[in-house]
Amino acid sequence: MSSEGFDVQYVARLAHLELGKDEASRFSGQLGDILKYMEKLRQLDVDGVEPTMHGHGRTNAFREDVPVQSVDQDLFLSNAPERTGDEYRLPKIVEDA
């Protein structure tokens, strides 16, 4: 995506954000600058360089498949905006994702 073709409102919609006109133009400029910087990086010759998968040098941070006691159900449900029985209550959803 080039900085010219950048649609800040489209990205805001995907992120469930509502932007006012001022915000839209401010963020459009700021994000456009970031994209320009990416274009600058693209000028580097990276032939033969293996893509970096992570900024950290480590690999294989695993845990073993051993269960650990979960936290109390009521404690979690007390954080729910609304609960019904043992479940987090939602408005009725018609279609599953």
Partner: peptide, 9 residues
């Protein structure tokens, strides 16, 4: 899914 609401497990 229930009659008037949905719930998450």
């Amino acid at each position: 899914h229930y009659a008037r609401h949905s719930g998450i497990d």
